[in-house]
Design a binder for these strands. Structure first.
Lengths: 168, 168
DNA sequence: TTTTATTTTCAATTAATTTTGAAAGTTCAG
DNA sequence: CTGAACTTTCAAAATTAATTGAAAATAAAA
């Protein structure tokens, strides 16, 4: 398989994959492009390679930067900005976990703890089911929270070594 | 807080939460409603409680059934169908992991292994970066695959007990 | 300062997804 | 069978999300 073909395939699939996870297709594609680009690239490079508008590139790049997956690079003596993605895939994964946890899991746990205190008869079937369900989701969420926290701090070696041993 | 109010809050937030994860808002809301309903409910109940059309309920319920999160219940002597959600939240979580793994991770790993063999000079910077990146994503994906497989088979006790111990 | 290169913004457009609702299909009691 | 009760389908409509592109803003060079 030719490089250009494989690259196209990767970028387009990464975009489709992202979509299923609630990530803007273009953002995922830009990320994919940067992941396989050894050198920093410009907005114009991205516009050309993905056939998308300047505004679109700009917004999605900023988004990727806010996720700390991409950094802005100023080359000395150059007017244009360049962009480069974090290439250590373990760091990429933990960074995504960290951000999604912060943006989604934490707020959800906060909400659940607000739904805790229900007025009225705790013996009522409806009330009982609600309180129990919120409680068990909260419990699971808190456990996931702890596990993810450790993962975020861990080294990749720990994952491949120690943890996989636990999983025999 | 009143039950009805808390329930509304939960359903609507669960829907918003689902959206961020690439899950249809209505599907997530129906799931939330069923999670906090102690008894099986009908399509009409769902239509009324969420103010949505019959077709919408029907399609999303089928989707939930295909995820094995909801089951169809026929009450003896009744003409209508009833629906009920799996209430064990650990089972819900592992079932979702199982399905997403099957529908998303597995196909992605399959794709990556097809992008392995690139023609041309492995010393070329572009080629090298591509091959290495695909390789490391594949490696991480395979590790995640193993970990998730064990989780899917595990009991919740294992998660709360043994695993959390590993995480001190 | 003025000019030029480059980035950012955002209203308008386009695309993608979701929802509706009525018709067709199914099932079952009488 | 027949018809009422109920479920399913799917084209069209509505909604939501993403994208464009040109104008405004910014920053560096002349």
């Amino acid at each position: 398989m030719k490089l250009s073909e494989a690259k196209q395939q990767f970028i387009s699939s990464w975009g489709a994959f992202g979509t299923q996870w609630g990530i803007n297709r273009t953002m995922a594609q830009i990320h994919a492009l940067l992941l396989v680009s050894p050198d920093p690239v410009t907005q114009d490079d991205i516009m050309e390679q993905l056939s998308i508008s300047r505004g679109n590139v700009n917004m999605n790049i900023r988004d990727l930067i806010s996720w700390s997956l991409v950094e802005r690079i100023i080359l000395p003596g150059e007017r244009k900005e360049y962009f480069s993605a974090e290439k250590d895939i373990w760091k990429v994964a933990t960074q995504i976990i960290k951000e999604r946890k912060k943006r989604e899991l934490d707020p959800m746990l906060k909400l659940l703890s607000q739904l805790d205190n229900i007025d009225g008869d705790k013996k009522d079937k409806e009330t009982k089911q609600f309180v129990e369900m919120i409680g068990s989701i909260k419990k699971l969420g808190n456990q996931a929270d702890k596990v993810l926290d450790v993962m975020i701090k861990a080294e990749e070696n720990w994952f491949t070594g120690s943890l996989l041993k636990v999983f025999k």
